[in-house]
Computed example of a mutant assay.
Amino acid sequence: MELTTVWFLLITVLFTGYFILEGFDFGVGMLLPVLGRDDRERRVMINTIGPVWDGNEVWLLTAGGAMFAAFPEWYATLFSGFYLPLLLILIALILRGVAFEYRHKRPEASWKRRWDAAITFGSVVPALLWGVAFANIVRGVPLDANHEYAGGFFNLLNPYALLGGLTTTALFLTHGAVFIALKTTGDIRHRARKLATHTGIAAIVLAGAFLTWTLSIRNTPAAIVLAVVAALALAAGVAAAHAGREGWAFTGTALATGLAVITLFAALFPNVMPSTLDAAGTLTVDNAASTPYTLKIMTWVAVIFTPIVLAYQGWTYWVFRKRIGVTHIPN
C-alpha cells in the first residue's frame, strides 16, 4: 500500500475519532438548556464531559496537523476556501472552552446563564458547520486549474451541504442525549433517554436522506455498504435507547457516527477535494501529497506515538466511567 493511501486512511481515522468523541460532548452542550432544569442538573451534565472534552479536541488538532504535513495542497486549499466557516468553528470552540473554565468562577445565576449560553452556542455552531464543510468536500467545490478556490462563502451554503449540517446536528444531539443517559442517574437519565428516542427519529430521517444523496453524487461499493451499516447502527441505537439499554444505544450511535464519516471518505477516495469547474483542478491523494521521504518519517512518528495517545485517552475514560447525579453535586 502506498504511503499516500496510508495517510489518507489515518486522516480518516482521526476525523472519525473526532466526530465520535466530540460528537457526544457537542450534543451535551446543545442539550444544556433543554435537559438542565436547574443549576445542579446543568452541573451534572457538564461534569459528564468535564474530564474528557479537551482531550476529544486533540483529535481535531492531530487531524489538522496530519493533513498539513501529509497533504499540504489539500490543507492550503481547504483552509483558504473554507476560511470563514472554519474561523467560525474556531471562535465557537474557543468560546466553549472558556465557558467551561469560567462558569464556576462566580456564584451569580446571571453569570452562569451567560456561560451556559456560550457553551450551547459553542456546541451548535461546530455541529452544524462541520456537516456543511464535509458535505462540500464530498460534493466538490469550484477549484481552478491551479487548485485555488474560485467561489465564495455562499457557494458553500447549497442545499446538499445544509442537509449535511442538519444531519450532523441531529446525530450529535442523539449521541449526546444517549451519553447523558449512560452517565447519569435519576430523573435526568430518564429524560435524556426519552429525548434520545425523539431526536434519534429525526436523525434517522435526515441521515438517510443525506447518505442517499451522497451516494447519488459519488458512490463506490464500499461506500454503499458502509452507508447501509451506518443507517442500521443508528436505528439499532435509537431502538436500544427506547428499550432503556443505554450501553448498546451509545454503541449504536457511536458506530453510526463513525461509519457515516468513513462513508464520506470512502466516497471521496482517491480524491481529497474534487473540483466542480475543471477536472484538472481536482486534488487527489497523489497531487496533494508531500514528498515520499516526508511521508516515511511521519509514518514512523505515527507508529510510535499513536498507541501511546490512544492508551492514555482510553485510561482517562476508564477512570471517569461511573455515573453521576444531582446527589453528587453540593448545594
Rank of each mutant, 00 (worst) to 15 (best):
7 W>M: 01
8 F>R: 03
9 L>M: 14
11 I>N: 13
13 V>Q: 02
13 V>I: 14
14 L>P: 01
16 T>C: 09
19 F>C: 10
21 L>P: 00
24 F>G: 09
24 F>L: 13
29 G>E: 08
40 R>N: 09
42 R>P: 03
42 R>I: 11
43 R>H: 09
43 R>L: 12
45 M>Q: 12
49 I>G: 01
50 G>S: 12
51 P>Y: 04
52 V>C: 08
56 N>M: 06
57 E>H: 15
58 V>A: 13
58 V>Q: 12
58 V>F: 11
65 G>Y: 12
66 A>W: 01
74 W>M: 15
74 W>T: 14
76 A>E: 02
78 L>Y: 12
81 G>L: 10
89 I>P: 00
92 A>T: 09
96 R>F: 13
100 F>C: 12
102 Y>W: 13
105 K>A: 13
106 R>M: 15
108 E>D: 15
109 A>Q: 10
109 A>W: 06
117 A>R: 13
118 A>Q: 06
120 T>L: 08
121 F>R: 03
122 G>R: 09
124 V>T: 07
125 V>D: 04
126 P>Q: 03
129 L>A: 07
146 N>Y: 09
151 G>F: 13
153 F>K: 03
153 F>P: 12
160 Y>N: 02
164 G>E: 02
169 T>F: 14
171 L>G: 10
173 L>A: 11
175 H>M: 10
180 I>W: 00
181 A>L: 13
184 T>A: 07
185 T>D: 15
185 T>V: 11
188 I>R: 04
194 K>M: 06
195 L>T: 02
198 H>E: 06
200 G>N: 03
202 A>I: 15
203 A>N: 09
204 I>K: 01
208 G>Q: 08
212 T>W: 07
215 L>F: 07
217 I>C: 05
220 T>C: 07
223 A>V: 12
224 I>G: 02
226 L>K: 07
227 A>V: 13
233 A>G: 05
236 A>Y: 13
238 V>G: 01
243 A>M: 09
248 W>T: 04
252 G>K: 06
253 T>W: 07
254 A>C: 13
257 T>F: 08
258 G>L: 08
259 L>F: 09
259 L>V: 10
259 L>I: 09
260 A>R: 04
260 A>Y: 14
262 I>G: 05
263 T>C: 06
263 T>G: 08
270 P>Q: 09
273 M>L: 15
281 G>T: 11
285 V>Y: 02
286 D>Y: 00
288 A>W: 00
293 Y>G: 00
294 T>Y: 00
295 L>M: 11
298 M>V: 01
300 W>C: 07
305 F>V: 15
307 P>S: 00
309 V>D: 02
310 L>P: 04
311 A>Y: 03
311 A>R: 01
313 Q>D: 00
314 G>H: 05
314 G>N: 08
316 T>H: 05
316 T>L: 14
319 V>M: 07
320 F>Y: 15
320 F>Q: 05
323 R>T: 14
326 V>M: 06
329 I>P: 11
329 I>R: 03
